[in-house]
Design a protein around this nucleic acid. Structure first.
Length: 419
RNA sequence: CGGGCCGUGGCGCAGGUGGUAGCGCGCUUGGUUUGGGACCAAGAGGCCGCGAGUUCGAAUCUCGCCGGCCCGACCA
């Protein structure tokens, strides 16, 4: 795609009040635009990355055998009263129709999915089962903060599983935990899996997936040498204690919670009288688990952990484009433009996502924007490279560039993209 | 929600002892440029967050409200 056709643009200066890397670079780079506190528009560039992140999450959920569906955000008050969360949950947005009927804007979907599953999972033959969706959530946070890390409206993948017994639920819970680790790893994120409290969801223990970064708001007691960690809220160990799993010494760390999984037990199936008929024809209560990943927050966490002073450094798996093609055409640069146009067409024909900066702008500006946007591979076509019969190759993670012969460039890019 | 800082063209800012607006970036047009945010010239663009009040006169002073950011509390 040509940069000149991309809706949105980079800003010379970052917003003055952006104090986290994700707020600064996502806004400055033209990935998102802030509408109000905690509410953002995802511009075409940002949406491309968001979709890649969500596709990775989707693939991992599909691999678990969960079915994707799409539930409403507009939810009836009656469901929330059944779980005592209409009055009990402060972050729930409530609104009234013109006829005076009350609705909730979904901050989570147990209240919708439980009565839904009750209609279809009536027999032990229907269980276990799991469903998930990627949907917008609304939460009336007292304070939105840190760019897209804590919003009032945000995207989230939420999965719900239904089981006939605890062993089955626990087995699925641990499969989900592994799937989560895999999804985060594919997004280029190192996460620590820590024990946490159940919050408004459950009294049972739960696990959080924490991306370590100072922009995070969660305090952890964790081991720098192995995967042991606890959320400080429920920690039984202190910084300085010996790690129970290895020789390490526990330290205090900050993290962003990018995922959270809960063993819900019968909390919601009790509220909705969700029973199944077992092999002997008896009614028994269904056990549930729920599993969340904040996908917009996940994009923010990736920026927090993948940037330098100049901008973002997207992992290949989630970059909005694979290649940032820069043409430095100058005044008499017809031949340069032609080469760039051909290369652009060749790359697109090969299924490689390429952003071609075709603007009549100075080299410095194009390079600065390329660094800011953070696409993993930058290719430059210029008088200099053309004189060598080459294209300049520079990876965002590297300081130096090199030349690749023109006839080899397509294959080199394909190798780079798929490695 | 408590505390702090702040609202002036799209973005970043100055002006503040009252006399109804200015700079940089960006944008438009013309020309010169082209390897790390080029230069010259000419332009467009603002109910100075909103509302009351004081005053002959308010971006500027007073009060109220709204909005944004940060700390705290709260929170998946």
């Amino acid at each position: 795609m040509r940069y000149s056709q991309l809706f949105g643009k980079t800003l010379r200066e970052a917003p003055a009040d952006a104090d986290t890397a994700n707020a600064k670079f996502l806004i400055q780079g033209g990935f998102v635009d802030q509408e109000m506190a905690g509410v953002y528009t995802w511009l075409p560039l940002g949406l491309r990355t968001l979709r890649k992140v969500e596709q990775i999450v989707r693939e991992e959920m599909d691999a678990l055998g969960a079915g994707e569906l799409f539930m409403p955000s507009l939810q009836p008050k009656e469901y929330w009263e059944k779980t005592n969360r209409w009055e009990g949950v402060d972050i729930l947005f409530k609104l009234k129709s013109q006829t005076g009927k009350d609705y909730a804007l979904g901050c989570t979907h147990e209240e919708v999915v439980t009565p839904l599953a009750r209609k279809f999972a009536v027999s032990y033959k229907d269980l276990p089962s799991a469903v998930y969706q990627i949907n917008t959530k609304f939460r009336d946070e007292l304070r939105a903060k840190s760019g897209v890390l804590r919003g009032r409206e945000f995207r989230m993948k939420d999965m719900y599983s239904f089981h006939t017994n605890q062993e089955d639920l626990s087995a699925f819970y641990h499969r989900a935990l592994e799937a989560y680790k895999k999804a985060f790893a594919r997004c280029g994120l190192n996460v620590k899996v820590v024990q946490a409290s159940g919050g408004i969801f459950t009294e049972n223990v739960s696990h959080e997936f924490q991306a370590l970064t100072d922009a995070g708001e969660d305090m952890l007691v964790a081991c720098p040498q192995c995967d042991f960690g606890q959320n400080s809220e429920v920690a039984t160990r202190k910084p300085g204690d010996a790690c129970p799993k290895c020789q390490g010494t526990l330290a205090q760390m900050k993290g962003v919670e990018v995922g959270n999984i809960f063993d819900l037990g019968t909390k919601y199936s009790d509220a909705f009288d969700f029973d199944f008929t077992d092999e002997e024809g008896r009614k028994r209560r269904v056990l549930m688990g729920c599993y969340g990943i904040g996908t917009t927050r996940l994009v923010g966490a990736i920026v927090e952990t993948h940037h330098d002073g100049k901008g973002v450094r997207w992992p290949k798996t989630v970059a909005p484009f694979a290649v940032h093609l820069v043409s430095l055409a100058g005044k008499d640069g017809e031949d340069i433009l032609n080469v760039a146009e051909d290369l652009h067409a060749d790359l697109e024909r090969s299924g490689i996502e390429v952003l071609w900066d075709d603007r009549d702008a100075s080299p410095g500006r194009k390079f600065a924007d390329a660094d800011l946007i953070g696409i993993p591979l930058r290719l430059v076509v210029s008088a200099k490279s053309l004189a060598e019969g080459s294209v300049e190759w520079k990876e965002r993670r590297d300081a130096d560039a090199r030349l690749v012969p023109q006839q080899d460039i397509l294959e080199a890019v394909q190798t780079f993209v798929h490695e």
